[in-house]
Amino acid sequence: MYLPDDKRGPAASVSTPRTRRPTKRALAKARTKARVLDAARELFVTRGFEESTIRDIAATAGLSTGAVFGSFSDKNQLFDAVMMASFKEAFEAASSVQGHAELGAAEALSAMFGAAYRHFGSQLALVRASQAQCWSRPECAHLFETAVARGRGLVELTLHKAVKAGELSDTLDAGLLADMLMDLYIANYRRAVFDGWTAEALEARTLAQARALLCGHLRR
């Protein structure tokens, strides 16, 4: 985090020489980077990844192509940054509804998935491109898997809570079920992409799926 100049005494910069306050140049660079990311996401979402050129992105951001290359070495790297930012937002949206403890496990899970579906609802082109990209580029696949693993962690946590609360049996394999729920959550995007399902319809589907998967694991 960068503090404004007047909040930092000279002592701070002396005692922590490694975290020297950012120069005006560094701040400008960060601002440029943010502008590039915003423009790139807008174009990837509206026009598609393949159809957007660095030149288009620069024009949308109101920058030169040179300025874009100052922050990102190529379009792939730019895509990965846009994808990770969007996945992070989806994770935050899912985490924010995860705390509703009064819900049953299936309802809590579908609320989380629903939040993610709503986040990506307007960015389906990005979802499609991320799938195509991560099958063809290992570094993109790695980022994608990292994001999936974070979501899976949230799902597993919800299952553990339900076991603790006595709703689900303590003999269930939470890791296995979490993997399956993530597979189903990802597979449902085809319904959005090819059949025009809304986030609400997808959420209802995940609720039915979570119930079908968990009903055999209720504590009896």
Partner: peptide, 29 residues
């Protein structure tokens, strides 16, 4: 996807599917 990412072979895939089917069939009994 798991096979590709974790390097599972046919045997590994079938074993994984067996565990998943066991979990699903709990709800079908």
């Amino acid at each position: 996807r798991t096979a590709w990412y974790d390097g599972l072979d046919v045997g590994g895939l079938s074993k994984l599917m067996e565990r998943q089917l066991s979990a699903l069939f709990e709800g079908l009994q």
